[in-house]
């Protein structure tokens, strides 16, 4: 495990290496060498299984964080390659030539976050939503409650209660609220 991490650190100038467990580690590389690092792990270190690909929206930093998680079936080791891309001009090199299932992941990320993967097959097609015409729905500035209220017909009279407070008021109205309880309610 450590050998592999050292090699990638040297080769691709990886930063921010996190070893979660004996068999799971993440490291962050620059955007333009991320696919190279994935290819290296696949071709030279035996990481033949592509587990998943996902994206985290760091809205405050103006970045998307992409994660490629790989698995080595012989050594039973998982390594995640992370990389940051620009949020406003979200374009990432496509990795569909490495594993075919990356088509689908990239299609999903294109729909959910608006990331473009030039050259990836069928990336423009609908993935889960059909005929979506708003901003990509997983971007954090998208207000799902407001969208739902404007689009669907919210039922008037719907109220939401905090279960702990509501039950105490209904079931034990005379019991004084202790200081500890007050803290818990917050």
């Amino acid at each position: 495990m450590n050998e592999i991490l050292d090699k990638i650190k040297q080769k691709y100038d990886a930063k921010d290496v996190t070893v979660e467990r004996d068999r799971l580690a993440f490291l962050t590389v620059a955007k333009d060498v991320a696919i190279d690092a994935v290819t290296y792990l696949r071709d030279y270190e035996g990481f033949s299984h592509f587990v998943m690909m996902s994206c985290v929206d760091w809205m405050e930093d103006g970045k998307y964080q992409l994660l490629y998680l790989l698995h080595n079936p012989e050594k039973k080791v998982d390594v995640g390659i992370k990389t940051y891309i620009d949020r406003d001009n979200a374009v990432m090199e496509s990795a569909h030539h490495l594993w075919k299932q990356i088509w689908t992941y990239q299609r999903e990320l294109h729909e959910a976050f608006g990331i473009d993967f030039p050259g990836s097959p069928r990336v423009e097609e609908n993935f889960v939503l059909e005929g979506w015409d708003d901003i990509p729905h997983m971007r954090r500035e998208f207000n799902t409650k407001e969208y739902s209220e404007n689009t669907y017909f919210p039922r008037p009279g719907r109220e939401t209660y905090d279960p702990a407070t509501y039950m105490r008021e209904k079931l034990y109205p005379n019991q004084p609220v202790t200081a500890k309880r007050k803290d818990n309610d917050k």
Binding site: F142, T144, S148, E149, Y152, F153, P154, R155, R158
Partner: peptide
């Protein structure tokens, strides 16, 4: 009836009878 626990979801409807 009213969207249930998915009342604020962008992809599920709230009231079927509409």
């Amino acid at each position: 009836i009213n969207g249930g626990m998915y009342y604020d979801s962008y992809s599920t409807i709230n009231r079927l009878d509409h």
